[in-house]
């Protein structure tokens, strides 16, 4: 396939000549100094401290890692996946009262390959565990998991032959307690996860479970 260079206004195939590039960069520089474009009558020249302040007010410096973490943490794509009664509360977080869309997590995906957050809403029976593990394995990295409610964290009132706690077969980032947790609680859990992804991505399960180096590589 032939690669085409996109010129100004998306005109394909026209290569920008060095002179135009130079003029553009000069214009950008002028704008940044608070001046007007060439041709305007009074370009304001800022120097020294004033220029410093002007630039500080208009630019944000960050590392690529934290910028990426910021973007990721503000748009989780949860897997539309309910196991039991907790799922009702999970639906309500997407409902009008709690409205998870305020934080950018409203895109519930029906396929694990499009999701990066799995919320285990309900109890996990022994027969269901391999299926959930499979769904989790099908999700693309980076991925997170929330265990919602008592059953899949500690098996709750069903601490018997039938259930298995989620920690036994997959890594969990956030446990939300409750039976079932109210939508506020789940929201709090998701926001905690956001906090974790933004501020301390190292606090993930790989560190806790000693699984550093097992990331999927492209």
């Amino acid at each position: 396939m032939k690669r085409e260079v996109l010129g100004p206004a998306g005109t394909a195939g026209t290569r920008v000549d060095p002179e135009t590039l130079r003029v553009r960069s000069l214009n950008a520089h002028q704008l940044l100094r608070g001046g007007e474009l060439e041709g305007a009558n009074q370009p304001a020249h800022l120097e020294g401290e004033e220029l410093e302040r002007y630039v500080h007010e208009r630019l944000v410096f960050t590392t690529l890692d934290s910028a990426v973490a910021w973007a990721r943490s503000n748009s989780f794509f949860p897997l539309a996946f309910g196991l039991a009664c907790c799922a009702m509360e999970q639906f309500q977080t997407a409902g009008p009262r709690m409205d998870i869309a305020r934080f950018g997590y409203e895109a519930f995906r029906a396929s694990p390959r499009q999701a990066d957050l799995i919320i285990l809403a309900g109890r996990v029976s022994i027969k269901m565990a391999p299926i959930i593990r499979r769904l989790y394995d099908q999700m693309l990295e980076p991925k997170w998991a929330i265990s919602m409610g008592a059953c899949c964290s500690s098996m709750g009132v069903f601490n018997n032959y039938a259930l298995v706690p989620a920690d036994k077969f997959m890594p969990i980032d956030v446990h939300v307690p409750g039976c079932p947790p109210r939508p506020e609680a789940l929201m709090h859990g998701v926001l905690k996860l956001r906090e974790m992804v933004q501020d301390n991505p190292e606090a993930g399960w790989r560190e806790r479970y000693g699984a550093v180096g097992t990331e999927e590589r492209p």
Binding site: S154, M155, N159, N160, Y161, A162, P165, D167
Partner: peptide, 16 residues
């Protein structure tokens, strides 16, 4: 057969 009454209830200690 877990619902038989002589079958142990099972479960496991909770890991906090």
């Amino acid at each position: 057969h877990p619902q038989r009454r002589d079958f142990p209830i099972g479960g496991e200690p909770v890991i906090f």
